[in-house]
Structure formats: C-alpha cells, structure tokens
Design a protein around this nucleic acid. Structure first.
Length: 495
RNA sequence: GCUCCGAUGGUGUAGUCCGGCCAAGCAUACCGGCCUUUCAAGCCGGCGACCCGGGUCCAAAUCCCGGUCGGAGCACCA
C-alpha cells in the first residue's frame, strides 16, 4: 500500500483525522453596536508614570476595535491634576503603547486645551447650567448630601460670568472657589448631584507652569474632549459608571450626541505591586532599578522579562468586555506566553546553587546536544568531557540522590554518588522511565545570575554556549529566562 | 448607610439581549496514558460549573420577583 492509499483509507474510516490541522478558532471580541463608517476611540491615561499591566487592557481592546472597524485611535493624556504628573510619562506612555503593538493615530494633551474648557464653561454659565461656588469643601458636600442648595447656586448667570472671569484673573487661591455643574439636587444618587467642574490648582503645572491655575476636573474635560474629538465608542472600567452619568449632563445641556459607553469589570492583579506614586519614590530611593525593574508590573518591566506583545493581546481579547469583576490569571497569561516563545527558545543547562564533583573513572567523551529537541535545525552545543572530568550539579538535585543510586546526567552518562565524588557507572544502559535524569554543567561553565520577579535571585553556573544565545532561552528543568545583554545575567520569565 | 453594577467548574471565559440546537463549548490547572535522555513542548483521554428560593412558560443558564454574596462609586484624583 502506497502512502497515498494509506492516507485515503485512513480518511475514509476516520474522517476526523483530517480536521486535526485546522487552526484553533480564535476567540473574538463581541461586535460594537451602532458602528457607522468608522469608529473613533481613545486611550486616556494620566501621565503619572509609564503604563502598567492593567492599562494594557484598555489599550489593546481599543486598538482591536479600531483595527476591526477602521477609524482613529486617540491617545489623550489627562494631565489636569498638576499634582500627579511625571514629565517623563509623556514620552514613556507612547513608547509603551508602541512596544505593545498598539497603533495610536493621534496624541492629544489636555493641558493644551485649557482655553477650550474655559470657553465651554462660559457657555454653560451663560445658560444657567453652571455656577461659581465659594463654599468650603465640607459645607458644599454636606448640603449636597441633604439635597440642599448652596447659597451660590441661584445667582444670576451674568453675575456668575463676572465671577468666573474674576477667577481667571488669578484673584483667588486654591480652595476658595470652584465652578459647579448644576444637575439635580434631588437625584437619588448623590454622586450625580451638582458636581465640581473646575477647581483652583495647588501646584504649578509641569507643562504650563503658572499660565493657568483654574483646572478642569476630569468629568468636565473628558466630556468636552469626548465630544470635540468625535468619540463614537468609549470603553472604560466599571469604576467610571458614576462618572459616565455625570458627564452625560454636559452632553445633554449641549445637545451633543452621546458616544456609546461600555463598562468592563474591574480586574484585580494578584501580586500587584504598589501604586505609581510609591514606585516613583522607591525608584528615587534606589529600591528599584527603574520603571523597567522586573519586579514591577509595568509594561516595560514585563516586556523586559520576555512577555510577548501578542501574549497581552490574546489574553485581553479572551477576557473580553464582561462587566463582571475578575482576577488576572498569571497561570493563563504564562501559558499563552509559553506558546509564543517555546518554538524559538534555545535550551541551555543552568545549574542553580552548583556543587562541583569529580567524576571518577569517567572516560573521554564528546557529546552533542540540540538547542531545541524538536528543531534540530537550530543547531547544537558540543562538549568534550575529559577523562575524570569535573561537573557541576545543583544542590537541589543532589538532595534527591541516595548513596549508590544511579542517576543519568542528561545526554552524557550514568553516575552514582560515592562519598564526595561521583563515580562513572559500570552500567550505562538506562530506562528513562525509571532513572532520574538531571542536567549538569561542564567545568568551564560561567557564573550566572537569574533575576527573579520576587526579588530573590538565583545564582549558579551556565554552560558556555549561552554566549551564542540571544533573547529567551529555556533553562532545562528550571524555566524560561530572558538573557540580558550583560552576558552573565538573565531575567526569570516563568516556568 | 446611600446609588449603581454583577453572579457559569480551582482559574479565565463562551452562551444570557432575541427561552428550545446547552444532559452547557473553549482555554488553563489538575489526574491518567502516549511521546520524550528537561520538571518544557506535543498528542490522546478524564475530572470539574449555570449563587439560592419562588414565578412565567409545553420548555429557563437565558425572562420576572425576592434573597444572598461580590464589586464599584459616594473627592476641589483620574
């Protein structure tokens, strides 16, 4: 029977065999509603630091939809709180997005748009939808909770306008005046009752200095920008639900078309480390090497460890837009990443906490081990082991030896432990099912440190051929490690 | 406390809008087998879930009501 006949026979009886190679169906994001010719969507981080793992979700989801429908993806840097700005973030954020494979079409910086916000405020004041308030913070809040009007709420628009212009001249100090959007004091949800649209800033703005000191609050600038930038769809976290309600007042007062909002659930990240502001301090104090410290869940930290941009993308697509809160699964994230990297990860022997042994009675032997067991075309590492050579093995593995039990040094030979030495076994046959196989390093190996995300670094030795390997390697029986350009260190990725 | 949202296996999700094709799909984890001179990868098989209680209906994971649990917000942060 020729090859073809066999194949025909086989498919006749087992037609499902043919299906085998069909690619697994990729999970797909649900369609958006009301999509016209194109969509306009946005990413709106505040430039307080680089992007972290949580940000990658909104970045990728928005990017996916803009790719699907065509349109525009706007990166809007929300820097209207001068107290929470890191000038470097204006550079780092676009860089992080680029490295994640997110294509931004346009960058908008809110601190360039103060005049637009002021102009919109004037329009609302003129029509009686906003007023200038001089209440103390506590009083304003207390009145609101009781659904009571504050003394400034029912002032004539002309007078409010005069006061607004007066604020702009710089006459007041932080805390002395605000601009409030008039909504509905009896609204059952106190969050949606009259809310503050502008306040006077306490700090000097890193970009605009002292030119402006009346700062729009997020709800105001976001509503104005979402309209003028022509947003069609907005993806945001559930924590924004009340804000969406607040912003809707601005749209209604102006008779603007409201974008379609989607609120996805909150994601909690196990092992999430620290807030951006704390990290910044710790970097300054030298506790972290920088924003790309591999102990951090910043995009740059994770990419440095060797997570692939496609891994982020696939993970977030599979998570979808559900409104349920969920916790981030490193297990699944790692598994997806493994799928992306294994094919190209060259295998190396790394011996953690090495112990050096002489192998008594060992013969001279040449061994040739493939860099990848399934892809021999990736080449080989070759070792010439001298008679009576020394080898390194891990103290972890040594703990598993019984005296006189035989162990296989992978791709080399069988040895047993005798006192302080290893002895070449008289029996070199072995059954891989029953014999313990451990890896090893030759005596001319290099010292090597694996930096781990938990901050505990593993020291050991690595075979010389690490110098021939770049990028992500799999250290056999240890895990995937992204080799640093430093040569003698690498970053632990995952098992 | 008030307002709003949600609830599918250990984890992440599909299905819920428009009830029947769902005795619930996929992934991951785990267990077993195959393959393998890595504890990786690959292949095959298995375990495992519709929060509870009512109601509507010929039929409910899906619709309605109540409860429970979880979350978010209630800032002159974003």
């Amino acid at each position: 029977m020729g090859k073809e006949t066999i194949s025909n026979e086989a498919t006749k009886y087992f037609p499902e065999l043919l299906e085998k190679d069909k690619p697994r169906e990729e999970k797909r994001l649900p369609d958006l509603d009301d999509v016209g010719e194109r969509v306009v969507m946005r990413l709106a981080p505040s430039p307080s630091g680089p992007l972290h793992l949580g940000h990658s979700r909104m970045a990728i989801l928005n990017d996916e939809y803009v790719r699907r429908y065509g349109g525009e993806l706007i990166l809007r840097l929300e820097d209207t709180n001068p107290a929470n700005i890191d000038l470097n973030a204006y550079e780092m954020i676009p860089e992080d997005l680029k490295n994640l494979g997110v294509k931004v079409d346009r960058i908008v910086i809110q601190s360039d748009r103060f005049d637009i916000y002021y102009e919109e405020a004037r329009k609302l004041i003129a029509r009686g939808y906003a007023y200038v308030c001089f209440c103390r913070q506590e009083d304003f809040r207390a009145l609101k909770l009781e659904s009571k009007s504050c003394p400034h709420r029912n002032i004539e628009p002309q007078e409010n306008m005069r006061r607004f212009e007066e604020i702009l001249t710089g006459k007041y100090r932080a805390g002395e005046a605000t601009v409030v959007i008039k909504t509905d004091l009896s609204h059952p949800n106190p969050s949606l009752r009259d809310w503050i649209a502008f306040r006077i800033g306490k700090a000097k703005h890193p970009r605009t200095g002292e030119k402006y000191y009346l700062y729009p609050m997020m709800n105001f600038s976001v509503a104005v920008d979402d309209h003028y930038l022509g947003l069609t769809h907005v993806l945001r976290g559930k924590d924004q639900l009340n804000n969406t309600g607040r912003q809707r007042f601005i749209f209604d007062y102006n008779h603007w078309k409201v974008p379609l909002y989607y609120h996805y659930g909150m994601i909690s990240i196990p092992g999430e480390r620290l807030k951006t502001s704390i990290i910044r301090k710790d970097i300054a104090a030298g506790k972290f090497s920088g924003w790309d410290d591999i102990r951090l869940n910043t995009i740059r930290g994770l990419l440095k460890r060797g997570y692939q941009p496609e891994t982020f993308r696939r993970y977030w697509i599979e998570s979808g837009l559900r409104e349920i809160d969920a916790s981030f699964s490193w297990e699944i994230f790692n598994s997806m990443n493994r799928e992306n990297i294994d094919r190209n990860a060259k295998r190396l022997f790394f011996v953690k906490e090495p112990l050096k042994f002489k192998v008594i009675d060992s013969p001279e032997i040449d061994v040739k081990i493939p860099f990848h067991p399934e892809h021999k075309e990736m080449g080989f590492r070759e070792f010439r082991m001298k008679p009576g050579t020394e080898v390194f093995i891990s103290s972890d593995d040594l703990a598993k030896f019984d005296t006189n039990s035989t162990v296989r040094l992978k791709d080399l030979y069988n040895v047993s432990l005798k006192g302080k030495d290893l002895v070449y076994s008289s029996e070199q046959k072995f059954d891989p099912k029953t014999t313990r196989i451990i890896h090893w390093c030759p005596p001319d190996s290099d010292d090597f440190v694996v930096l781990r995300p938990d901050g505990i670094n593993d020291r050991g030795v690595i075979e010389k051929s690490h110098l021939l390997v770049k990028g992500i390697s799999q250290f056999e029986r240890y895990g995937y490690v992204n080799l640093s350009s430093q040569n003698n260190e690498g970053y632990f990725l995952h098992k």
